[in-house]
Computed example of a mutant assay.
Amino acid sequence: MTTQPCDDLLTIRDWLRYACTRFASHDLCYGHGTDNVWDEAVFLVLRSLALPLDDNAVFLDARLTREERQRLAERIDRRVHDRVPVPYLIGEAWFMGIPFHVDERVLIPRSPLGELLANGLQPWVGGRSVERILDLCTGSGCIGIGAALVFDEAQVDLTDVSEDALGIARENIVLHGVEDRVHAIQSDVFEGVTGRYDVILANPPYVDAEDMADIPAEFRHEPSLGLAAGDDGLDVVRRILTEAADHLTPGGVLIGEVGNSEVALEAAFPMLPLTWIELEQGGHGVFLLQEEDLRQFVNHSK
C-alpha cells in the first residue's frame, strides 16, 4: 500500500469518493449488510470513524487525522485485495436497525428473520403469549437478542455448537443489556436444552455442497461451520424437523430459514405442510411449521 491516499485525501467526503472508486474498479461481492458500492463505502468510512450512518452531512467536510486516514487506507485495501467483508473490518454489523459485535468466529448477520421479528412475528403467533423463545444456531446472537427486544417479557435461550460463536453472542447480550432474560448455551441442535418453547427460531447451516464450492471470496472469511450442511444443505435441518416437536409448547411454532435449499427441503419432505413466508424486504426460503404438524410428521415417519 502506498502512502499517497493518506497524503492527498483529507476529508470524509474525499474518502467516500476514493472508496467508491476503488470498490467500483474491482469485482467485489456485496451482501453483508449492503448491496451496492455507495452503501459499502458509507458503511466502511463512517463506522471506521465511529460516526452515524444517518444524518451525517455535517461531518462530510471534516478533515481527518493521519491515524484515521491510515486506518481507512488499510481497510479499503483489505476490502479490495483480501475481499474481507466490511463488518469484519470494523467489528460491527447491523441487524433490525441495531449494532452487534462480529468477527470471523460468527456469520455476519443478514437473516430475513429480522423482518418477521420487527413485525412481532405477526400474524404467525396471533394472540398467544410468548414466554420462552429458542434461537437455534445463534452465531452472533442477533436473532435471539432481537426477539428478546421485541418480546420484552420473554426468556430467550441462544444455542450454538461453537463455543467461539457463543463468546460473541455473550458480548452482544451484554451490549444490549438483556443478561437477565437471554442465556447462551452450548448445544448441538437440541442436545443441551430443556423444557419447551413457544417459538423456535432456526437459522442453521443450509448451504449445499455445490453452492459451497462456488461461493464468492467474501463468504470464505465466514466460518464454514455456519454455512456448509452436506450435499443437499439439509443435514442440520433434518435434525431440527425430527426433534422440534418435543421442544415446542402446544400450539407453538418453528420458524426456520433454508435459503437456496428451499427446493431441496420440499423435495425431501413432500408431505410436510410447510408454510413459506413472503418477505417484503428481500430474501427467501423462510418456512413456518406448527407444533401439531411437526408431531404428526414425526409420528408418520416412525
Rank of each mutant, 00 (worst) to 15 (best):
G283T: 12
V253M: 03
R71Q: 14
T34E: 05
V174G: 05
A93P: 11
R69L: 10
T2N: 13
G285A: 11
N299L: 15
H101D: 15
T138N: 11
L121R: 01
R238Y: 04
V286H: 05
E291K: 12
R110I: 09
W38C: 03
G31K: 11
F269L: 08
D208I: 01
I173F: 06
I255C: 02
D211F: 02
L49F: 05
S301F: 15
S140D: 02
S129C: 01
V42C: 09
A245G: 00
V298Q: 12
R181V: 14
L53A: 03
G251H: 00
V298W: 02
R239I: 05
V102Q: 00
G259A: 03
G146M: 02
Q70M: 14
L10N: 11
L113S: 05
P99K: 04
C142L: 02
A169P: 11
L116G: 13
E191S: 13
A169Y: 11
S25F: 01
R78N: 13
A169F: 07
Y18V: 08
A268T: 09
F151R: 04
Q281C: 15
G226E: 02
E40L: 03
E92V: 10
Y206C: 04
D135T: 07
R295G: 06
V182E: 06
T11L: 09
E68H: 05
E278D: 15
F190P: 08
E163S: 15
L248V: 02
V58W: 07
R220L: 07
H32F: 06
D231S: 15
G256Y: 01
A184P: 01
E68I: 11
E278I: 08
G31V: 11
S25I: 02
L49H: 07
D164K: 12
G282T: 04
R17H: 14
R22K: 12
E131T: 12
G139D: 09
V102R: 02
E179H: 04
L248D: 00
A165L: 03
T65N: 03
D235V: 02
L227W: 00
G114V: 09
D82F: 08
L10F: 07
D8L: 07
S140Q: 07
I76S: 05
N56P: 02
R13T: 08
I173M: 03
F23V: 10
D235E: 10
L265V: 06
L248T: 06
R105E: 14
T2A: 06
F151Q: 12
G120R: 07
R79M: 14
F190R: 03
E291S: 08
D188T: 00
V106K: 07
T249Y: 00
L72S: 05
T242L: 00
E262P: 05
A154K: 04
R71H: 10
D39Y: 04
P87W: 06
L158N: 06
G230I: 09
E210S: 06
P87I: 01
D55V: 06
H183F: 13
R239N: 03
F43M: 13
Q296T: 14
W124T: 15
V253E: 01
D27E: 14
L51E: 08
G282C: 07
T3M: 11
E292L: 08
V86D: 08
E292K: 15
S187Y: 01
R13E: 15
S140N: 03
G91W: 13
Q296P: 00
W276C: 05
H284Y: 06
G285V: 05
F219G: 07
